[in-house]
Design a protein around this nucleic acid. Structure first.
Length: 851
RNA sequence: GCCCUCGUGGCGGAAUUGGAAUACGCGUAUGGCUUAGGACCAUAUGUCGAAAGACUUGUGGGUUCGAGUCCCACCGAGGGCACCA
């Protein structure tokens, strides 16, 4: 028999599979559609990262498993090639992104074809292709028409290195997600998508799936509804945190005015609070420096110079400095302005301070120094009054987190827990939880100065980028008619070629200098107008690509209704957890919006999502600077794709990741070689189906694949192979073919080669039919009667310590087992002369004699 | 600061409802085969001990006939959120 030569057989099979279209699902005729998706890569210049290979292999194994189970699996792939990451690299290299990206994509495609995945190349998507981004622009127009895209002026995060604004989600600890530079605040007008309209829905489906969330095709059972969407818990948790729902109340504080000015301007300042029960302890208000009331009442502020100076200083500060908790709380009083606390009509001062954020709640807070640590610090610094209104003293035991320390009648720390109300008029003695409801009710009835409310941390999605390498936002500005959408018939708005693609840093896109691009006719009045020159955030491209995949052959629409209904939502999505609040949340938002427009019938894009773990190299994180990045090319050239795939999956639990060790791959190489050699030693043509280990292995591998526990599935297969090579009498055609089938998702080439040799010996390759492929065979089933051995090793314990073991029939009774156990010499030594108090018997496992 | 996840041999990692801790693999050692091997085969491989046996899943306690698994406290690592009112 020839040696195992992966290089030879792998290339051969890939060519055959492609030529015979073995893995292409018939999207129109498929009876049992299963959409298996993986996060499409962005084609970086370094080529495919081993992390990509890891993710794609794990996802592909799932797709192959489902294929064996009789599903028509659609497994597409594409390229997320627009965006700052690609552009920054092009700038660094001094090559135009259009040229560089094409080169990278070609290289990626070549590498991806070596991975042995089920990819359907007939449905490749490339976000930089006008045939694709035409529909990204179309999507923007639909959102605009639905009132979900709007232009607004707001303080936004600006990356001075990338020279563009960023979405809230792209700022990590005050730094740019892409280049790690400190971001600064800028006040400009930008395009936003109103994701906040969907805050509640985005949150709700995580906890409880609503009816129809997965479309008309998938019925939601009460269990599914109760569990919430079937996603990795970690990812759901991150999204919940990001959405950040708080329940509380809005409370209006009347601004005190002289009789002659009573009708002028705003009459109140509204605050949001989660603790309306502490309202009697509110001794001042604090506004964000950007709060509009400040400008409005400019003339009333007695210390206007100080106030303006403070606002100016705040603006210069970076967001990170501003949000630094260590920083002392600093602020200025708005002298001359007083508001009335609605619960007791007390006149209280108004301050401004930078720790209050303008974009959360109402941009104003009520300060209760005794029961909020920030207010406490601030009040202490400026000597503001404090009133204790919640007493931690209760009849019941004190709650655990009592931080209140009273010394000489003054607090050293705010008490933020629940308790009983004091100093609160008619509410004295009431429990704080109850008072939260009652105080709001009372104020609402009295003069409507309070109402229940909900706040979210989630902010609208800023999608404008002052960059070149993206899909142009399809809008036109006309002096007369204002902002006008580009008519759909004029799409795509092509990204023009320019040599000067570098970001200018002036706050406008490089497209702004291309006169032929900027000049446009107003779609409404046909007069001269100016085109929007910003491009879309790259996350907009990827927010809907999974809808495009099945419809790539429709050039006249973004997606075909029939095909979409048949294939979506995605059955299984696998990717990195790092996109929890970026791509994964944007995609959910876009899907919900499309559903509300009546364009699709599901609101959740991904029925199931699993995040894969992270790969490390010999215990350390892989990074270019450390030079310890594993290059997959080296390994599949040396060991073959099958060995690389199987080794990656053997490293550890797929959802937790694993540690790559160069020497470790040898173990998997030996394992596959062993199988290759074993195939030449099959002597028994019949039998095998009754082997207990074989049936156990089928059960184990099937369950493990279902739960993405690939590492233990491989280990079970290794045990089977070891067993067969040690017990050649059990090495039958049946047992070996079952082994090949169980292994085929991991090592598709090797198993196909051996399968063909065994089933069609001497057949010519030209006679190969896709139906004869091992990958088209049904998944093996086990006989439940044959997974149990007839005898078992019974552990004999004395007082819980193992003293002996005996081989017994699995049906042995407790009495028999006990008699057997105490008759054993070893056991006698331990129990002799002692009274047996109790005997615990676990059938097939153990017997424990307690003395 | 708050929340989440996780601590098992020299290493990656196994361990159904609490029931043989260390499966599988790497590495290592010894022997075989070989001109040679970083190839292959066999055996061994948690610690202490000559052995019987004792000890061992981050540390300390608890529940239990029995705890890696459940409960409490602490220590350590990783991740998320972070002045969100």
């Amino acid at each position: 028999m020839e040696n195992y030569n992966p290089q030879k057989i792998e290339e051969k099979w890939r060519k055959i599979w492609e030529a015979k279209k073995v893995f292409q699902a018939d999207l129109k005729e498929a009876k049992n559609p299963y959409y298996n998706l993986m996060m499409f890569p962005y084609p970086s210049a370094e080529g495919l990262h081993v992390g990509n290979v890891y993710a794609f292999t794990g996802s592909d194994i799932h797709g192959r498993f489902r294929r064996h189970q009789g599903f028509d699996v659609f497994e597409p792939i594409g390229f997320d090639a627009f965006g700052i990451h690609s552009e920054n690299f092009a700038i660094k290299k001094g090559i135009h992104p259009k040229i560089l990206v094409k080169k990278n994509v070609d290289n990626f495609r070549h590498q991806l074809k070596n991975l042995g995945c089920l990819f359907d190349w007939g449905h490749e998507v490339n976000t930089t292709d006008p045939k694709y981004y035409k529909w990204t622009q179309w999507l923007f127009l639909q959102l605009y028409k639905a009132g979900l895209a709007c232009r607004k002026k707001a303080p936004v995060d600006w990356c001075p290195s990338c020279k563009t604004v960023l979405a809230d989600e792209q700022v990590i600890n005050g730094k740019c997600e892409r280049c790690d530079s400190q971001v600064i605040q800028k006040e400009t007008e930008q395009w936003f998508l109103k994701i906040t309209n969907y805050a509640e829905k985005l949150l709700k489906n995580l906890e409880h799936l609503s009816e129809g969330a997965l479309g008309s095709k998938i019925k939601i059972t009460p269990e599914m509804a109760k569990a919430g969407i079937d996603w990795s818990e970690k990812t759901k948790f991150s999204q919940k945190n990001w959405i950040g729902k708080s329940e509380g109340a809005l409370i209006k504080f009347k601004i005190k005015k002289e009789p002659y000015e009573e009708k002028k301007g705003s009459s109140e300042i509204e605050v949001f609070t989660t603790r309306p029960d502490t309202l009697f302890g509110c001794t001042y208000l604090v506004l964000a420096p950007e709060h509009p009331v400040i400008k409005e009442f400019k003339t009333k502020i007695l210390n206007l110079k100080n106030v303006e100076k403070y606002i100016e200083e705040t603006r210069k500060e970076s967001e990170t400095d501003r949000l630094n908790e260590e920083k002392e709380k600093v602020g200025v009083e708005l002298k001359g302005i007083k508001v009335i606390n609605p619960v007791n009509q007390r006149e209280i001062p108004v301050w401004i301070a930078d720790y209050v954020l303008v974009h959360y709640g109402t941009g104003a807070v009520m300060a209760v120094p005794c029961h909020d640590q920030r207010d406490f610090d601030f009040a202490k610094a400026y000597n503001l009054p404090m009133i204790e209104v919640i007493s931690s003293y209760q009849k019941e035991p004190l709650p655990k987190k009592v931080s209140q320390v009273v010394s000489n009648g003054t607090f050293e720390k705010a008490y933020e827990g629940d308790g009983v109300l004091i100093n609160s008029g008619r509410f004295d003695g009431m429990n704080s939880k109850e008072a939260q409801e009652k105080i709001v009710e009372w104020l609402n009835k009295k003069d409507q100065s309070a109402k229940k409310s909900v706040c979210y941390k989630l902010r609208d999605w800023l999608i404008s980028r002052q960059r070149y390498w993206g899909a142009p936002i399809p809008m036109i500005y006309c002096e007369k008619c204002g902002w006008q959408p580009v008519p759909e018939k004029d799409l795509p708005v092509l990204l023009p070629y320019t040599k000067n693609f570098r970001p200018k840093g002036t706050g406008v896109s490089p497209l702004d200098s291309i006169e032929s691009f900027v000049k446009a006719k107003c779609p409404k009045c046909k007069g001269n107008a100016k085109r929007e020159t910003d491009v879309c955030d790259t996350f907009m491209d990827s927010s809907w690509y999974f809808i495009r995949y099945p419809s790539t052959n429709f050039n006249n629409k973004a997606f075909d209704n029939e095909i979409t209904k048949k294939w979506l939502p995605v059955d299984m999505y696998i990717g990195g957890h790092e996109h929890a609040v970026l791509h994964l949340m944007y995609s959910r938002f876009i899907t919900m919006a499309l559903k509300d427009m009546g364009l699709i019938d599901f609101e959740e894009p991904f029925k199931k999502f699993r995040a894969h773990g992270l790969l490390t190299k010999e215990g350390a994180k892989m990074s270019k600077s450390k030079g310890n990045v594993v290059n997959p090319d080296d390994y599949y050239k040396k060991f073959g794709t099958d060995t690389l795939r199987t080794y990656l999956m053997f490293l550890g639990p797929f959802e937790q990741g694993g540690d790559w060790q160069d020497l470790g791959i040898n173990g998997v190489k030996r394992f596959l070689e062993k199988i290759w050699l074993l195939s030449g030693e099959i002597k028994n043509k019949s039998g095998g189906e009754n082997d207990i280990l074989l049936n156990q292995t089928i059960k184990k591998v099937t369950e493990d694949l279902e739960n993405l526990r690939y590492n233990t599935a491989i280990s079970a297969l290794m045990i089977l192979v070891n067993h067969l090579s040690e017990n050649k009498d059990q090495l039958t055609v049946k047992s070996f073919k079952t082994l090949l089938l169980l292994l085929s998702p991991f090592a598709p080439h090797l198993t196909e080669e051996l399968w063909q040799k065994i089933n069609y010996p001497g057949a010519k390759l030209s006679a190969y039919l896709s139906g004869n492929s091992i990958h088209s065979r049904p998944w093996p089933e086990y006989n439940p009667k044959l997974i149990k051995e007839k005898t078992a090793t019974l552990i004999i314990q004395v007082n819980g310590k193992i003293r002996d073991k005996i081989e017994v029939n699995v049906n042995i009774s407790k009495e028999e087992a006990e008699a057997l156990a105490i008759s054993r010499e070893k056991v006698k030594n331990w129990v002799a002369g002692k009274e047996i108090k109790k005997v615990i018997f676990v059938p097939e496992k153990l017997i424990n004699i307690v003395i």
